[in-house]
């Protein structure tokens, strides 16, 4: 796997270069970067390896305009930094309120024991540690995922039939 810093460095280099499209593949990880055009999203096809879209190059900005922008927005870099940190903290505390049930393996997420059946849990369902909340399947191994906490389901984060990665959050539970 590439480190975030490495990906960032790649984006920077490609951004500066004349390359329009860049693909990197290693050990089942695939990284696709495209410039100046929309990447045809295939994420809905659940087997697609991670697709990372490089930030689009800003559309021809005139230096003067940029200057103006800077003048009109009177936020110093330090303040900006502080704001960003505040936001980050807020997101973290929001997430921290809820317990995340995560997938213990890569596979297909199923909300119900069989197609057309009632889902194991819905938003609002009360769960205990032993409640089965979903199935993750890979290579015909069916893993019944237990809540592992007592509480109430407040959100289901993935769609039925979607491919989920190792450690990916599946549900948010408001613990008791």
């Amino acid at each position: 796997m590439l480190k975030v810093q490495e990906i960032r460095e790649l984006i920077r280099l490609i951004d500066q270069s004349g390359i329009d499209e860049f693909t990197y593949e290693s050990n089942g990880t695939k990284l696709v970067m495209k410039k100046n055009q929309m990447v045809e999203s295939k994420i809905s096809r659940n087997q697609q390896p991670t697709v990372i879209e490089a930030p689009k190059k800003p559309v021809e900005e005139k230096p003067e305009q940029r200057m103006n922008d800077k003048q009109s927005v009177k936020v110093s870099p330090q303040e900006e930094q502080q704001n960003r940190e505040k936001e980050k903290q807020q997101v973290e505390t929001n997430d921290g309120d809820y317990h995340k049930i995560v997938s213990p393996m890569v596979g297909t997420f199923y909300r119900a024991p069989s197609p057309g059946a009632e889902p194991y849990v819905k938003v609002g369902s009360k769960v205990t540690e032993k409640t089965i909340v979903c199935i993750v399947e890979a290579m015909k191994l069916f893993n019944e995922i237990e809540a592992d906490v007592k509480g109430e389901i407040v959100d289901c984060l993935v769609e039925d039939g979607q491919l989920v990665e190792y450690g990916q959050p599946l549900f948010l539970v408001k613990t008791e």
Binding site: K42, P49, G107, A138, M139
Partner: peptide, 21 residues
């Protein structure tokens, strides 16, 4: 197959899919 056992499919456009189910 991948080291996990997933089936590796190459589509016409050359992109590679991992199939788990």
């Amino acid at each position: 197959i991948s080291d996990e056992g997933a089936l590796l499919l190459k589509e016409k456009d050359g992109s590679v899919l991992r199939i788990f189910s």
